[in-house]
Simulated assay, not measured.
Amino acid sequence: MLDLLRHLEREGFGGAPRALGFDDRGREVLTFVDGRSGARPAETDVGPVREGHRVWRDDVLVHLGGLLRAYHDAAATFPWTGREWQLEVRRPVETICHNDLSPGNVVFRAGVPVALIDWESAAPGPRAWDLGYAAWNWVPFSSEERCRAAGLPTSIAEKARRFRLLVDAYGVEADVGILRTGIERMRQYLDHLWTLVAEGSEWEVRLARRGVLDELAHEIAWVEDHAVALVES
């Protein structure tokens, strides 16, 4: 991970912590990235917020798309072969995917995303692996039923508009393939959660008992059913 961060610095990417080396206990030492995590945004950073659901401002999506593109371009030249990665390498390899672009791993300053943190899951893969997952989390892609229950906009056309904002800022056209890659990523995540349930992991067992994993499966199915409309509406 330190080698990747040093490469990003050499490539001029400013949206990541700097690698300082190791401390006397062998732990990696990074610079602190000043700002606020998207897991706990200021009220001015988001639009409607109901029961933990967020609708990020349009300019947040635009800045995130640009930040992700700058990262992917800088990471694309990283020499990745012959290295060990915590997650599997995904083909086609186009860059080093961050692999966890949830709001909690994005740092905000002045209300917009400026940096990415938590790099342990980074691994080689296609750009759409990150872009599809980012779209899922930030547009966000939630069923009409879930949005209605949270008092948020339910329109598929509005979700499609916000999806285009994100991918336009990244520099690609909205494509159903990006959504299908996001679906694959979320299925992988759900399978991982069920594996932890089977192993008796306390937190995941509680999630399963509360129906959270079944709700995620329902959300995945909803996005799959509406993938074309989410691109073309």
Rank of each mutant, 00 (worst) to 15 (best):
K159T: 06
A227V: 04
L20R: 15
L20D: 09
H63W: 03
D59Y: 02
P92H: 02
E215A: 15
V107Q: 09
V231M: 02
A150Y: 12
I183W: 08
I156C: 01
V106M: 04
H192D: 14
W203R: 14
H98M: 00
A123I: 04
L68A: 04
Y71A: 00
F163W: 04
V197Y: 05
R91I: 02
V93G: 03
V107T: 13
V112Q: 13
R91D: 13
A19H: 02
P103V: 03
S201R: 10
T31N: 10
W119F: 11
A150S: 14
A217E: 14
W203T: 12
G47M: 05
D130G: 07
L230H: 07
E145A: 14
T77A: 15
V228W: 10
D191Y: 01
W85R: 06
P113Q: 09
T195N: 12
E202P: 08
L101T: 12
E224S: 09
R10I: 04
S142T: 13
R83N: 04
W80F: 10
I183C: 11
G200F: 10
E51Y: 09
G21W: 11
I156L: 15
A42Q: 08
H53R: 13
W129K: 00
L165T: 03
V212Q: 11
V46K: 08
P124C: 01
S155N: 10
H192E: 15
F141S: 02
R180T: 04
A123E: 06
D3R: 12
A135K: 11
I117W: 00
L2Y: 01
A221H: 04
L101K: 10
W136S: 10
V223C: 03
E94L: 00
V93Q: 03
V112D: 07
A227L: 04
R162F: 11
G52A: 09
E88T: 01
L87M: 08
Y133H: 08
H226N: 15
G211Y: 07
W222N: 13
T44D: 14
D168E: 15
G65N: 06
D73T: 08
E232D: 12
A42K: 08
Y189V: 11
L64W: 05
L193A: 08
L213I: 07
L230G: 05
L61K: 11
M186F: 12
F108R: 05
L101D: 06
G38L: 12
R206I: 07
F22E: 15
A217R: 12
S233P: 02
A229E: 13
D225P: 01
Y170H: 07
T77H: 11
H72T: 00
R36G: 04
G35V: 12
W85A: 07
V60S: 07
P41Y: 09
F108I: 08
G171Y: 12
E84S: 07
R164P: 05
T154Y: 00
H98S: 00
Y71P: 01
R57M: 02
R50N: 09
L68D: 02
T44M: 01
V33S: 00
G132V: 04
A208N: 14
T181Q: 15
Q86Y: 05
A198F: 01
C97Q: 01
A39C: 05
L64D: 07
A110Q: 14
V172D: 14
L190E: 10
M186H: 13
V112F: 12
